[in-house]
Structure formats: C-alpha cells, structure tokens
C-alpha cells in the first residue's frame, strides 16, 4: 500500500480559534481510514480542507503527491476525491433519481449543444444507468421517483453516499454516514463499505459509532482539540491511554 492521500501540517484558524492545528496523517490506497475525536475536535473542518471547501490557513493536502490544497471543491472532485456532508445535504426538491444523476456529472459531462440537438442520448442513457446502479447498490432503487426531501433519515444518508458513489470516485470522504440509521441499517452499510473497498475505492470516514469504526477501519487517526492524538489499528486505538483520556475527560461522546 502506497501513500495516496496525505495531510501535512494542516492548520485552520477561524479568527482566534484554531480548529485544526498542524494535523498530519497518511491514508493508504485502498484502505478504510477512520478519523475520530470528541465533538468539536475538528474532523469536519479537516474534511472541508481536504475537499476544497475551505482553504487551509497553513499546510498541504497531497493527492498522489500533488498539492491539492486551495483548489476549489469541484476541482478536487474532478481529481477523484468526493465527499458527503455531515448534515444530510441533498437536492431535497429533486427526485432520488435526479439526485443520483447529478452525481454522474463528472463521468457524463453534459454538453449543451448536443443536448439541444439531441445528440447526447448515449450519454443520457449511460448516466441514467450509472445513477440507477448507484441507487441499487445503496438499496434505494425502490424509492427512485420519490422526492429526496421526503425520504427517511437513514435513506437520506444512503442517498448522500449514492450521489458520491455515482461519480466513480477514487476516494470517498464520509462525514458521519451512519447517523440516523438503526443497528440493522448500519450493519448493512458497513457491508457496502467493505464492497466499496474491494472495488478499490479508498474511504476516509468520520463516525461517532465506535463499534462501526472499530469493525471497519484498517487504520484510525484520533484527534482532539484540533491536534493529532494517536494513530493505529482498531486494537491499538481502543486501548490507547491518550484516546481513552480524550473521550472520558470532559467529552460528551464516550466510546
């Protein structure tokens, strides 16, 4: 496994607050990598910097050795790094299928002239096939024509992942994908994550459900108050004194 995605001395300041403080870690190609830490540790902020939503105050994000920090979100996405959002962020007014179709924007780039004349039927059917495939993968094919905003919370989380998956990403960043899912749904989703991994997709995941994290991840990075705390396999992290301390000492979420 080679260094594929690397975060180097990443720092983000909001006014006087340092949300992420020279954080460094490496994500190996084809692995499932967990990023954990108590509430407010800076996990989402880290995702925002990797995905190009924020420009880091300092530090670099390296993808296959290329510095992608400071690129816009769509430019990062076009390099194969696609994210989901912590709070179900969907096109609530559009149907489930249309949501997934937007996800196919990169592999099937719309062309306005072809669209007017009608020379894009191949692309359209290709995009539709891919969208349906992504929905099927996440078990959403039976709600294809429903308004995304009307879905149950768990289905909305799944749709967020389906939109990301539809774009054929190399890396998926998942921000708390299992919130709002019952244990059964969570278990099914974990199986799907394993299948994505088997397909060669690298997954970077933020999640408070420790059972899921421990069951899924090859490597886990733990952070607290914006700083790197510990890294290792599930077994190591579970028993790491600093991690236990961070979660027990004044944090709301307990592993």
């Amino acid at each position: 496994m080679t260094d594929f995605l690397e975060v180097k001395d990443l720092t983000m300041q909001f006014g006087g607050l340092t949300a992420v403080d020279s954080l460094s870690f490496k994500v190996a190609h084809g692995s499932i990598h967990g990023l954990i830490g108590p509430n407010g540790a800076g996990k989402t902020t880290t995702f925002n910097m990797i995905s190009g939503f924020y420009k880091p105050t300092e530090g670099q994000v390296l993808l296959r050795g290329e510095d992608i920090s400071g690129l816009q979100m769509h430019e990062v996405a076009r390099r194969g790094v696609v994210r989901t959002f912590q709070h179900s962020t969907l096109f609530a007014e559009l149907t489930v299928l249309e949501n997934a179709l937007v996800g196919t924007h990169m592999p099937f780039r719309p062309n306005i002239f072809a669209a007017i004349i009608g020379w894009d039927s191949e692309d359209r059917s290709g995009a539709e096939a891919r969208a349906k495939e992504a929905l099927e993968f996440f078990g959403l094919d039976h709600v294809m024509q429903e308004r995304a905003g009307d879905l149950s919370h768990g289905h909305q989380r799944a749709l967020g992942m389906a939109v990301a998956y539809a774009s054929h990403p190399d890396v998926i960043l998942l921000d708390e994908p299992f919130t709002g899912m019952n244990p059964e749904e969570t278990r099914q989703m974990m199986d799907l994550m394993e299948r994505l991994k088997a397909d060669g997709i690298t997954i970077l995941i933020v999640e408070h459900d420790m059972q899921a994290i421990m069951g899924l991840c090859d490597t886990i990075t733990c952070m607290s108050f914006g700083k790197f705390l510990a890294e290792g396999g599930p077994q190591e992290i579970r028993n790491h004194p600093a991690v236990i301390e961070a979660y027990l000492g004044g944090a709301r979420h307990v592993a």
Partner: peptide
C-alpha cells in the same frame, strides 16, 4: 437536458453540486 438538471442542482444545493464536480 442534463444541463437543466445541473441548473436546478446549483440552485437547490450548490455545495453538493460542487462536491459532485459541478463548476458552479
């Protein structure tokens, strides 16, 4: 067309559109 769908996407949730590779 897919272009029109992308217009809608940009309207309803420009963040997610961008994360899907749309140059908003």
């Amino acid at each position: 067309s897919p272009v029109g769908l992308t217009f809608h996407a940009v309207h309803w949730q420009d963040k997610l559109a961008q994360a899907s590779g749309v140059n908003v």
